[in-house]
Simulated scan of single mutants.
Amino acid sequence: MLTGMITLVALMLLVAVFLIATYNKLVKLRQRVQNAWSQVDVQLKRRYDLIPNLVNAVKGYVQHEKDTLERVTHARNMAIQASNITEQSNAENILTGALKSLFAVAEAYPDLKANTNFIQLQSELSDTENKISFARQFYNDTVQIFNTTIELFPNNLVASMLGFIMVDYFTLQGEVEARENVNVSF
């Protein structure tokens, strides 16, 4: 009887330790995902801050390209207002396309391409795009670890009991479109 009671208590203690360890691991991973998203968000904010300066630098040279400038501004505003990962991904894809169009238009204006302010802003934006790319990769790697941990047995039992849910990746929508060249016609 005593041996059975000790075995039962030891088994209950083992289950409690497993539950606590799994819960703590999931909380730690969820915090890493939130930190990774924060890093993406910081770089996106930097990008959003650069865009109005870039648009203003271009405005003086390309008066009749108002539509392109408005698309960039509209895309930036959509990206700023995005409220979740999916909306953010979609808005960023639109913004990236609009910026590609802006740079394609700038190619047609030699004075603009030689403008020091434009060159500096273009360089800063390129640097920011690289940082965004790295931050996205880090975020998606962190999400992959979190989502895999939630799906693995027996973690999935604990995760579902405690309300841990899968997190969306920050992905390109329509990768084929994103890889195509921008078509600009005058």
Rank of each mutant, 00 (worst) to 15 (best):
L50K: 08
T73F: 11
E151K: 11
T96A: 06
N115M: 05
E129T: 13
V176K: 15
Q34T: 10
I80G: 00
L19M: 00
T171V: 02
Q81G: 13
Q122D: 03
T86F: 02
E180M: 14
L54C: 03
N93R: 07
N147A: 02
Q81L: 14
S160Q: 12
L162T: 09
L172D: 09
K100F: 07
F153P: 00
A108S: 15
I6W: 11
L99C: 07
K66I: 10
A57S: 15
A104H: 04
Q34K: 07
A106S: 10
F103A: 08
T96Y: 06
A91W: 14
I119Y: 01
Y61A: 11
G174R: 07
A16F: 14
S185K: 15
L172K: 12
T86K: 12
F146C: 02
N130D: 12
V42S: 13
Q31Y: 05
A108T: 15
E87S: 05
T149C: 01
E177Y: 04
G163K: 02
S83K: 15
I51K: 01
N183T: 15
L69C: 07
D111F: 03
A106Y: 02
S83P: 08
A10E: 06
V143N: 03
T68S: 13
R47M: 09
V40Y: 06
Q81H: 13
T68R: 09
F153Y: 12
L2A: 15
Y169C: 03
E180F: 04
S123T: 15
V72M: 10
L99R: 02
A16V: 15
M12V: 12
A104N: 08
V143Q: 02
F138Q: 05
A159Q: 01
W37E: 06
L2I: 14
P52D: 06
N35H: 10
D168K: 05
V184F: 11
S101F: 07
L69M: 06
N117M: 01
Q34H: 03
T96I: 04
V143W: 04
V182L: 14
L102I: 03
L8S: 14
M166P: 00
P110I: 02
S83G: 15
E175Y: 14
N155V: 08
D111H: 08
K45I: 12
L99A: 01
L26G: 00
A98G: 10
I132C: 07
Q120V: 04
A57Q: 13
F103P: 14
A75H: 03
L54Q: 07
S89M: 05
Q39M: 14
Q34S: 11
H64R: 06
H64T: 04
N53H: 15
